[in-house]
């Protein structure tokens, strides 16, 4: 029965990571919450992880897609060849 409600720290961290990308289920979140009630390390990890997600969201970070980066790489390599 206890296995049904209680999860290991490792599992809790994994659920917390998945939660940052909205990939955890309600049941998993519930189990994470239970773990947070008695585990300082889990609570600390959840707080820090949530802050990181908030910071990334606030910063509105952007980066090149894999395809855009490849294209830029090809152009730079061609230019480099021409320069040499």
């Amino acid at each position: 029965m206890s296995k049904f409600f209680f999860i290991s720290k490792k599992d809790a961290f994994h659920i917390c990571d998945k939660s940052q990308y909205k990939e955890s289920t309600i049941w998993e979140k519930f189990k994470l919450m239970i773990r947070c009630l008695f585990c300082d390390a889990t609570r600390h990890y959840v707080n820090r992880n949530t802050k990181l997600t908030e910071a990334i969201k606030t910063s509105k970070l952007d980066c090149l897609s894999h395809h855009e980066r490849q294209l830029l790489n090809e152009r730079l390599k061609k230019k480099l060849k021409d320069e040499v």
């Binding site: 952007d62 980066c63 980066r69 790489n73 730079l76 390599k77 480099l80």
Partner: peptide
């Protein structure tokens, strides 16, 4: 040769 890998995302952002 390492510019894209190391700096393209930083410069893009």
């Amino acid at each position: 040769n390492k510019w894209i890998e190391l700096y393209s995302d930083y410069l893009f952002n």
